[in-house]
Design a protein around this nucleic acid. Structure first.
Length: 876
RNA sequence: GGGCGCGUAGCUCAGCGGUAGAGCGCUGCCCUUACAAGGCAGAUGUCGGCGGUUCGAAACCGUCCGCGCCCACCA
């Protein structure tokens, strides 16, 4: 039916079809933008720089809505700055994602029945590179699809040659400064990934466990301890009690028998023990628990490792070779047999750490690792925010940031993986330890007994260098000179600790106290339309590419921008994307109309005196909108600026300006030319304002409208300061008149198209020049000879008398007026009450009092009018 | 346990001291010469509960209830 309709009403002359088809323009437009070098930054430019480096997505990743969201915001920011005349660099790249990528390739190998050990280190890393070339980086192509204006000539990878050099350089510098050291400590160990992981790579969740109470010792010298990890008792080297706990005073300093072993262990006094908790006695396993390790240090206890890297018991005896969880039940059974289990197992919910990559239960493990000493680095990272050189947005995130940097523990940077930056330290035959810089020779050959450290660095070590390593550091490149410090970091608040803090520490350290970015704009997570978290593993996950295919990239971008309240999570649903698509289509059709009716950008704007009030009104509104949008941009208020543009474009320009101006356009002549120039201006500026968020549809329309080459490098609109308050008031009144009469017509059951004879009395108003528009929009015919007013509406001083002889529904009209009257009387009562309140008059600001007076006056006017109309109504 | 935040229309969210807002959804009328992916009109809220401050509270303070996030601990 729709199709037929369109055929019956062929569009007048225009090259544009009646519907916007994103798929037909997006791909080609993007290629053109890239080919013409619009996104390529020039380090030698005289222009002021504006830099954003993209948070590098994992090489293993595919685009999800979270990326699409952040990328949209970064693209909007850089596109606007580019239009404002900045030398804009938005730098793309990817992260090698150590564990994630290694896991991926190991899985692939497993399908072939092989392990990485079968291949050996070198062949394995070759294989990962091969995987990367073949499957990695899919996500970058998807960013193009989104329209991301990235400078592809500067694409980087955390494992490329330059960045590897940066890693080695900073490692060496930190090492030489004593900020990197090697130490044996309890670390979080993943028995599946077979590597240490940092504190923040551990996800804690409440798991069901069992608390078992065990009796240690013999005869009078026994003590009951409770544990959820029974298997660790094999590695106990003490029992600790509180020094003031009288129940155990007699035991302190003595040695008691450790069940299932032939060892005795000391009872030590330590204030760490809470006498109120459990039995007040704690088993101490220094090699397998961080707290116990600390106790062990204080009391000079032996650390006894009882498991290998896979979590298999290594202690000689009946449990040797059992997995940690098998060992747990076996040991409980053995202890029960000995009558050592004094209270039966009871369910116990406690927080258990899991590897953030593979969900395996983390095993705390004593291990020799490399560490970054963070105290001075973290201090500097905190100060940069404290003294305002770096602003976090929204600001309340700063507290969380301080809580973190002020309580940071040393960072474990070594990983027992093969995919990553290998630690540049060599060990010599006589115990030499040599840290090698990028230009240093290797201190000796393997044949001479030298070996390189087997471990690689934490992925976040290299991503911590991202804002300057991508610009060429440690070389003093023109890029680094021009584009560092970067301007804004856009990233999720979930990643502050992983990444933001590391970049701050390394950036300030390596770049002589120059901050890596001036502003951190923190975003929330993308959620589905019911507020549920959307992630790859959830079934509600949506592939943004599907939506881009169905509704266009602009629609997805606009929806995301509209949902972007600072720091808050972003809900998104397909219906909303559809609505955004409708908006794009609306812009499309409004521009079609404009082109068909002589809208132009040629020549100077006509003088205000030559314009209609409607023209002056929309230009006044346009410039206010420019100012508003700019303010919102500077405050990262994407939701608000999108909303402001949506309403300005749709409500004011398309629904009011265009409709009010139709009579002018259809009459032709000089006035039509003037309004055509105004409409051209309004669309030109509006498309420019919308371009950073919806680049494709705006580019297509703008080049058609203006004949310009591209909107990408077109000038960002400036507020011309044109304001016309009188015209704004005039059009507001006009809108009121039209809306009131429409409401009346609707209440009376008149069909929208039905023509009604009417007499307009516009004396006492400023609306005289709008009579034609009023008649056009309200379908009001000139009054004929037999005109007889059956209903008179009075709005804003204008009288509109309608001849509805025979059609008016008197009962409905009475009802309507009665309702209006009641509302007006209520309003009057409220205002009167206020104005009679002495305290209010004394304390309220004048502006508020005036407002109330105005309301009272209007209510009085309304009441008089409605009563008059009621009287004039024919008797039922 | 410490910290932060949130509860506003059916849904998702703005508003954060002076008459309750938006988008989507819903109801009615309409293919009115740009657009039915549209137009016009309409309905819907004790602004989580209870106290307090104030001339005036959705907004400020206290408290309770419900939800979420971060950090720490969990023998």
């Amino acid at each position: 039916m729709t199709e037929n309709t369109q055929q019956q009403n062929p569009a007048p002359t225009t090259e544009l079809p009646t519907q916007y088809a994103p798929a037909e323009v997006e791909g080609a437009l993007y290629e053109r933008w890239v080919d013409r070098g619009y996104f390529t930054a020039d380090a030698n430019s005289e222009k002021e720089p504006y830099t954003i480096v993209i948070p590098p997505p994992n090489v293993t990743g595919a685009l999800h809505l979270g990326h699409a969201f952040q990328v949209t915001l970064m693209d909007a920011l850089t596109r606007r700055k580019r239009m404002q005349g900045y030398e804009t660099l938005w730098l793309p790249g990817m992260d090698h994602a150590g564990i994630a990528t290694q896991n991926k390739v190991e899985q692939q190998l497993a399908e072939e029945g092989k392990s990485r050990q079968d291949l050996g280190r070198e062949a394995f890393t070759d294989r990962v590179w091969q995987w990367k070339d073949e499957y990695g980086g899919r996500i970058l192509g998807q960013l193009r699809r989104l329209g991301a204006g990235l400078d592809w000539s500067r694409e980087r990878f955390t494992m490329d040659e330059g960045l590897s050099k940066a890693v080695q350089t900073i490692f060496k510098n930190l090492y030489d400064d004593g900020l990197i050291y090697r130490a044996e400590r309890i670390i979080n160990w993943c028995p599946r990934c077979l590597t240490a992981i940092s504190d923040i790579e551990v996800d804690y969740q409440d798991d069901d466990g069992e608390l078992v109470s065990l009796k240690y010792g013999e005869g009078d010298e026994t003590v009951v301890v409770a544990t959820t990890r029974v298997e660790t008792m094999l590695g106990d080297t003490a029992v600790a009690v509180h020094p003031d706990d009288e129940r155990y005073a007699h035991l302190i300093g003595k040695r008691i028998k450790l069940p299932l072993t032939d060892r005795t262990i000391p009872v030590v006094a330590d204030t760490h023990v809470d006498p109120e908790f459990g039995t007040g006695a704690v088993k101490v396993t220094p090699a397998h628990d961080p707290n116990d390790f600390a106790i062990g240090q204080r009391h000079d206890l032996e650390s006894m490792t009882i498991m290998d890297e896979r979590g298999v018991i290594t202690v000689h005896g009946p449990f040797q070779g059992l997995d940690r969880f098998e060992a747990r039940s076996a040991i409980v059974a053995a202890l029960r047999e000995q009558g050592r289990v004094v209270a039966e197992k009871r369910p116990y919910v406690h927080s258990v750490g899991h590897c953030s990559r593979c969900k395996t239960t983390v095993e705390p493990r004593l291990s020799l690792q490399w560490w970054v000493k963070v105290d001075t680095l973290a201090q500097a990272a905190g100060d940069a925010v404290r003294d305002g050189r770096v602003a976090l947005h929204p600001k309340d995130m700063e507290k969380r940031y301080f809580d973190w940097v002020d309580n940071l523990n040393d960072w474990c940077i070594s990983r027992q993986l093969w995919w990553g930056h290998r630690i540049p330290v060599w060990y010599g035959p006589n115990g030499e330890v040599v840290c090698v810089g990028p230009d240093d020779p290797i201190p000796g050959t393997e044949a001479e007994g030298w070996t390189q450290d087997e471990d690689v660095l934490d992925t976040w070590f290299s991503s911590g260098l991202w804002p300057f390593s991508t610009l060429g550091w440690p070389e003093k490149t023109p890029d680094l000179e021009k584009f560092y410090s970067t301007d804004v970091l856009v990233t999720g608040h979930d990643i502050i600790f992983f990444w933001v803090v590391r970049m701050m520490m390394f950036g300030l350290y390596a770049m002589e106290d120059q901050v890596p970015f001036k502003t951190v704009a923190l975003t929330g997570l993308v959620r589905d339309e019911f507020g549920k978290k959307m992630s790859k593993s959830n079934p509600n996950a949506v592939d943004p590419l599907d939506w881009m295919d169905a509704y266009g990239s602009d629609a997805v971008r606009f929806t995301l921008a509209t949902g972007a309240n600072p720091g808050a999570d972003v809900p998104i649903g397909e219906d909303w994307v559809k609505a955004s698509r409708n908006f794009a289509n609306k812009i499309w059709n409004a521009t079609r109309f404009a082109l068909m009716n002589g809208a132009t950008v040629e020549g100077p704007l006509p003088a205000p005196e030559a314009m209609t009030a409607t023209d002056r009104w929309i230009l006044s509104r346009l410039n206010k909108t420019v100012a508003e949008v700019d303010a919102f941009y500077d405050d990262f208020q994407f939701a608000k600026l999108s909303d402001a543009l949506y309403h300005f474009a749709w409500d004011e320009v398309f629904d009011w300006y265009v409709e009010l101006s139709k009579t002018t356009f259809f009459e032709g002549g000089e006035q039509a030319k003037v309004s055509g120039r105004v409409l051209g201006e309004v669309l030109d500026v509006t498309l420019r304002l919308l371009h950073p968020i919806v680049p494709f549809v705006t580019e297509t329309l703008w080049t058609t409208l203006t004949g310009g080459e591209t909107l990408v490098t077109a000038e960002w609109p400036k507020d011309s300061r044109f304001r016309d308050d009188a015209a704004e008031r005039e059009i507001e009144t006009l809108q009121q008149v039209i809306t009131e009469v429409r409401r009346f017509r609707s209440d009376q059951g008149l069909q929208p198209g039905q023509r009604v004879p009417a007499r307009l009395d516009l004396d006492g108003t400023t609306l005289a020049s709008h009579e034609a528009a009023i008649r056009q929009l309200l379908r009001l015919q000139p009054e004929g000879d037999a005109f007889s007013a059956t209903a008179t509406l009075s709005v804003g001083g204008a009288q509109v008398a309608l001849d509805l002889s025979g059609t008016i529904d008197v009962a409905a009209e009475r009802k309507r007026l009665a309702k209006d009257l009641a509302a007006a009387e209520k309003e009057k009562a409220q205002a009167t009450g206020k104005l009679g309140n002495e305290a209010f008059l004394a304390k309220a600001p004048d502006a508020v009092v005036d407002k109330i007076r105005g309301r009272l006056a209007k209510a009085d006017e309304d009441i008089a009018r409605i009563q008059q109309q009621l009287e004039r109504l024919p008797q039922a």
